[in-house]
Design a protein around this nucleic acid. Structure first.
Lengths: 135, 135
DNA sequence: CTTGACCTTGCCACGGTGGCAGGCTTCAGT
DNA sequence: ACTGAAGCCTGCCACCGTGGCAAGGTCAAG
């Protein structure tokens, strides 16, 4: 099948597929006489794998490693687990960071009366903290 | 003072300051006879404001609006509050998304024995879900 | 006068994706 | 058979925000 159908069936876009190929994440697809990329069921399977891994928030680099492990019949599941665990750690760190920001911001919002007067604790906070090191 | 000192005192980098100026977030800094950008305490105050807003996760565009409100003595604090609240919504959405990913991934990791055998529920999941639409 | 720190501008890179242009192929309708 | 539309090709630019590097100018201390 052509790239369009492969895209529709994998849930990716043709653009992404070409991009993944250009970066080496995917081996170059076979070409037909017309120069169009051709995709078979195996390719589709790989594309869907990528799609799913992306949905789980893996970076393209991580996806590449997962793909390699996936194709490796001799892999140790421990490797996959380590990769996934590292990604979980990343996610947890990001979540903690965002949660902290949100809580700080929420506190500020809670203290802002939010009417038509100019006085605003949010702006007061923004202008006061961590500013102006030693003169 | 020159850009380097302004950077050190505001917690930004010289690169960022120039970038913010180039995008119009900051008004062009005054220049000395040598062509160097000059910064005074007012500028420093603005830079620190930006730094702090960035730390709270506001995008540069949002920072621009906050700066405008900050400089506007007639502002209604409700506007600031709305801006901050919208940002909190963004953060909450992001947090929910990441948390969902993490939980899914954690479940998979929990089910992977993680030894030297190739069998791996994580890869099984990646290869099976949402794949291969209608033939 | 040299050295080194600092400043200037300008360009390229990243991760991923979207968009557009300009040209080819293929297919469907007339 | 011809036309138009849809699909494909490549290649470039955009975003956000930052880092890096190059090739120069400038300033202060030795």
């Amino acid at each position: 099948m052509n790239i369009g159908q492969a895209a529709r069936r994998s849930g990716l876009t043709a653009k992404m597929i070409r991009y993944y190929e250009s970066t080496g994440l995917l081996a170059p697809a076979g070409r037909g006489d017309n120069g169009y990329r051709r995709y078979g069921e195996d390719d589709l399977h790989r594309l869907a794998f990528i799609r799913r891994a992306r949905d789980l928030g893996f970076s393209l680099e991580e996806v590449g490693r997962l793909l390699a492990l996936w194709q490796d019949r001799q892999r140790a599941s421990a490797e996959v687990k380590a990769l996934a665990s590292a990604h979980i750690d990343d996610l947890n760190q990001k979540i903690a960071e965002l949660t902290g920001l949100r809580d700080t911001l929420q506190t500020l919002v809670d203290h802002c009366h939010g009417d038509d007067r100019p006085d605003c604790p949010i702006l007061r906070d923004l202008e006061s903290k961590g500013c102006c090191g030693k003169g």
